[in-house]
Write a protein that binds this DNA or RNA. Structure first.
Lengths: 398, 398
DNA sequence: CTGTTAGCGCCTTCAG
DNA sequence: CTGAAGGCGCTAACAG
């Protein structure tokens, strides 16, 4: 069929073993031999048989990056950063990792399927990005899968999702201290410092009692709660009291943390947290449009709407405008993530910046090198930063 | 280390071969035995060793989807559609394909690297999305790689890129006839019907002279030229004569085809094609901002700017607004692709709709099933459709 | 319908 | 520094 190692060996007048050695660069080989082999390789246009070498060495060069929605730049940015970093790490020729992104579409079943597929391939590492689904059964299944993967030598990195099974937020910081403020009219952003969340999962394998601690190599936990709190505080400080909130899907950690931050700010300011002002939906523009309509119908006295991310905020703006409301004069609107397009809206969006590219790159690094995460329990907190732009202003009546 | 096939066989009191048979479902197995095996599998929590089975069967379940920019929804939409379709096709348990997206970042080197990596993994199929890089050397290298992949049994699908090595555009239609018009104020969209481009590449393998024709299983060719022409015709019919054009990177097929469509429209209307009104840049918002600034500086008499895609158009709008120009009163702006966010701009963007999701899904199908593409030479043309919205209007002086 | 027998292509001790 | 030999876990003919 295809040209094999021994074909190369034959042509280079050496044994297959030697060819293997120059290809993997793990053992000393005489320079002359080495060149001869390399020449044979190019002449024959030889390409290693991945499955065969993976089988023999019981490791593969596959790195899986799981995302909830590949069409969402939030994930695209992290994934591309991770891929770039992973490719960059592979220095010597032949040592390239195949960094690959898997789109779960937010479906628990597909998440598990991908994890199994990756396990089947004996992936070198797996990076899970974005919010986790909060369902006891599913979480347990994922944790179990990860434990098995880890036991088989796969490195696991969480990027933008909280430590396994944890309910707690921030905690063990490392990148910077909580959330800050930037942009015009520097409004106060109070750093969040919740007690560290639980970490890891204990699930011994049947074959040995190692891997009893956390199967997760490293966790990059976004400060969603702190960022959300700073954002709502900004709105409160402008004088808003009736603030609508368009949340993401109910069962996502990201959704919950952002919402909690929002509520903390309300509570701290002793502003009523009216349940009628809260709506859940997908993280897309359509749900922003729908939610804004419903919110404005139900509570015409609203002076501001906070969206769980920039994409939803976009929809909110569109809906508001369709109703003849001006942003920010009649209605302030804010988002989250600070995607590149946040500055293209009219007016530019007030939001919370998450260093997605940097986080993705770091995740890629942690996945490829043996390096451990910096924080305690392998958790690094990624800071969120309030960015004030034109879409928020003092409410009309002031 | 891990639990193997024979562990399962042992527990189920059968031979390894039998276990393999129930897992792959290719041979008849007694119902009783089958159940016993399946039970053993779950009890032992057995997961197939991908590399091992790939080696033995000399096929893998990996499907690679190459994209130029994973953070761009244009690719995200196609990729997610393809992944969804590929997952859906795998009916029987165990038959799942691992559909995976690889981000080249537009780099020729990385494109080749990914192709090699996929070849190494003996991928079942490869889908190449988006415009190809127009460089003789690189094209030849890609064609050669694809030929080798095809020779090894990998299915190759092109989605949104023209037939291999072709310079020609549209041609062999199949989805519908050319580009149409939709939206308010139906402006004429003249279908494009260039002579069919060259197809395929002849590169016999050293081992057999099969696969001598095109290594590409199927091609979904977007009607970029027709769409672009219809768009510019729309602008011309509104009365615009000085039209700026912000193109994508110079060496991309997508860029060239869209630009050619634009020029055809100008030529047909006998409007001067002023080279000073053309600027190239990346397919992102930043290049839209930069280009619009430069264009408006150089030619203040511009009444319209056409962007090579919606993302660039977004930047153009922002830059125009920053200069105090109103869209569309002072300047008409148009995009391409009709991304979901095109309706969230203010005003909503006039653009050309490409059925990205449908095309991606079709590509996924063609990659997984044995089905051949419909058109001659395996080329299906995907129609482009003008969508007129609020961002274009008659120029001021009329 | 099921067990037995060979490899798939490569890595990796173990000798030399 | 290099060659020889065994096996990684699974599949695919063959027999029965």
């Amino acid at each position: 069929m295809s040209v094999t190692l021994s074909d190369v060996a034959h042509r280079a007048q050496v044994s297959p073993a030697t060819v293997s050695r120059v290809l993997n660069g793990n053992y000393p080989v005489a320079e002359a031999t080495r060149e001869r082999v390399l020449r044979a390789v190019t002449e024959l246009d030889y390409v290693v048989n991945g499955p065969a070498s993976a089988l023999a060495a019981s490791t593969s060069d596959l790195v899986g990056i799981l995302v909830n929605d590949i069409a969402d730049p939030f994930f695209g940015i992290m994934a591309s950063a991770a891929q770039a970093r992973i490719s960059a790490v592979a220095a010597r020729p032949g040592g390239e990792k195949l960094a690959v992104v898997c789109n779960t579409g937010g479906s628990p079943a597909r998440e598990l399927t991908y994890l199994t597929l990756l396990q089947r391939q004996r992936a070198a590492a797996v990076i899970l990005t974005g919010g986790a689904i909060e369902d006891a059964e599913h979480s347990a299944a994922v944790a179990a899968k990860l434990a098995k993967l880890a036991a088989a030598g796969t490195r696991i990195v969480l990027c933008g999702r909280p430590p396994l099974d944890a309910g707690g937020g921030g905690g063990s910081g490392s990148w910077s201290s909580g959330s800050g403020v930037v942009g015009r009219g520097g409004v106060s952003g109070v750093p969040e410092a919740a007690p560290g969340g639980a970490v890891g999962v204990a699930l011994g394998s049947e074959l040995g009692s190692e891997a009893a601690a956390s199967p997760v190599t490293a966790t990059l936990s976004f400060d969603n709660r702190g960022g959300a709190r700073a954002l709502t505080e900004h709105l409160l400080s402008l004088g808003h009291r009736r603030i609508g909130y368009v949340a993401g899907p109910a069962e996502r950690t990201t959704t919950r943390h952002r919402l909690e931050g929002h509520r903390e700010a309300l509570r701290a300011a002793r502003v009523t947290d009216d349940p009628a002002l809260l709506l859940h939906g997908a993280y897309d523009r359509t749900s922003g449009v729908d939610a804004a309509r419903r919110l404005l119908d139900a509570a015409p006295d609203l002076t501001a709407i906070v969206a769980a991310n920039d994409t939803i905020a976009l929809g909110v703006c569109t809906a508001a405008r369709a109703r003849g409301l001006r942003v920010p004069e009649d209605l302030s609107v804010a988002g989250f993530d600070d995607l590149p397009s946040a500055t293209d809206t009219v007016p530019a969006l007030t939001t919370v910046r998450l260093p997605l590219y940097e986080a993705g790159a770091r995740a890629g690094l942690l996945a490829t090198t043996g390096e451990a995460a910096a924080g305690p329990d392998g958790v690094e907190t990624v800071p969120a930063q309030l960015v004030v732009r034109g879409s928020t202003a003092a409410p009309r009546g002031r």
